[in-house]
Amino acid sequence: MRAVTVSAYGAEPELVQLPKPEPGEGEIVVKVEYAALNPADWRAAAGAADPSSAEAAFPLVIGTDFAGRVDVVGPGDNRFRVGDAVFGLAVGPVHAGSYAEYVSVHQDGPVALVPGGLALRSAAALPTAGTAAAQVLAISGVRPGGSLLVVGAAGGVGSRLTRLAAARGIEVIAVVRGDERRRMGDLGARTTVDATAAEVTEAVRGARPEGVDGVADLVSDTADDFARHAALARPGAVAVATRPGASPGALPGGVEGVAYRMQPSAALLEALATAAAEGLLEVPFDAELPLEKAPDALAQNRAGGARGKTVFALRGV
């Protein structure tokens, strides 16, 4: 099968041929039709994966998010059948990524059926960004009628977080780079701050002088930058950091800092897919590319500026 791999941490991604995976007991092999790009993909390929994860086996297949159809069912009882449309996260052995024609996952892992009315392409774009958005919103503790500052709102996680929060009656203040007022407004943001044209602290204080009720910082790579955004929250609020470098540490003003760690589940994927199928969760796309374009797409994503999901199409191969 074709797969995009790295031969060592930090090596350049390349398209190679690998054996098709064989399912173990309780596993399924999925013929991938779409794989979605996430910033975590190139970070993992560079060696920035969770240090608690197992030692990588090279060549390491890049990618996490996928959607496709069950091709083979492993030994033993299984909740899936050949031909089922499924989507999820490849979070088993660290070398079993989703940028490949086939991926093997366990039935008890974060994998779910694609509901009727939801395209496989849209399903592939949901797992990482959708899970992160839903869990960050829950961790923030902001309730309907409250306010949430989303720093980095234009990206995949930020777009979904803005939509989910607004749908729950939460006032979203979206911090972006560039003129995204119309798009963020369509997603439900009450206020949009262009960090390239305005001083963020002043703009947010102008919108919420008493402080916001929660902060979701999706972009800060340092503790200092995170603390600066957290300082815009009221005392007792929660500020969530999603980047590994933004260690919350001690925050001023009685704000609680939380370092986000994704905890995917099949149940949450099912809820996200249902919301997307019903039109309650927008899945914005930036590009659809063939698998061989993945190395270039990873480099472009690393440079920044994405305004939606990039997916790699493998259907028909």
Rank of each mutant, 00 (worst) to 15 (best):
P51Q: 05
E202T: 14
L149R: 05
A231V: 01
T64H: 14
S104I: 00
A276M: 09
T64L: 14
D221T: 14
H95S: 14
A54W: 03
S147R: 13
R205T: 12
E288F: 01
N301E: 13
S98F: 03
V72S: 01
V157N: 05
K309H: 13
P209H: 06
F285D: 05
P115S: 11
R43Q: 14
V200P: 07
R79A: 13
V176W: 02
E199F: 00
A277L: 04
R261M: 05
G145T: 12
G178P: 06
P39K: 12
R168Q: 15
L15V: 15
A267G: 10
Y9L: 03
P115M: 10
A223M: 01
P93M: 02
L232V: 02
A153Q: 07
A44W: 09
A216D: 02
P115I: 04
A297R: 02
A198H: 13
E210D: 15
A267L: 09
P75K: 14
E256V: 12
L232K: 01
K309W: 04
A306K: 11
A275S: 13
E55W: 00
P13H: 04
G92Q: 06
K20T: 15
E288G: 03
E199Y: 00
A85V: 06
A297K: 02
E55G: 11
S7L: 04
A233M: 04
A189W: 09
A303V: 02
D77I: 00
L161A: 11
Y99Q: 07
D224V: 06
T64K: 12
Y34R: 08
G253V: 03
D41Q: 08
V30H: 09
L298T: 07
K20I: 04
Q135P: 03
G158W: 01
A49S: 14
F312I: 03
P19N: 07
K293P: 00
G249D: 10
A230T: 06
A124C: 10
V72M: 02
T310A: 07
E33G: 15
G88R: 08
Q107M: 08
V311Y: 09
L60I: 02
V32Y: 06
V219D: 03
G155N: 06
A49P: 00
R168W: 01
A306H: 11
R81I: 00
I139M: 12
A198R: 13
Q300T: 12
V82I: 15
E27D: 15
R163S: 14
E101Y: 02
V103L: 11
A227D: 02
R205I: 08
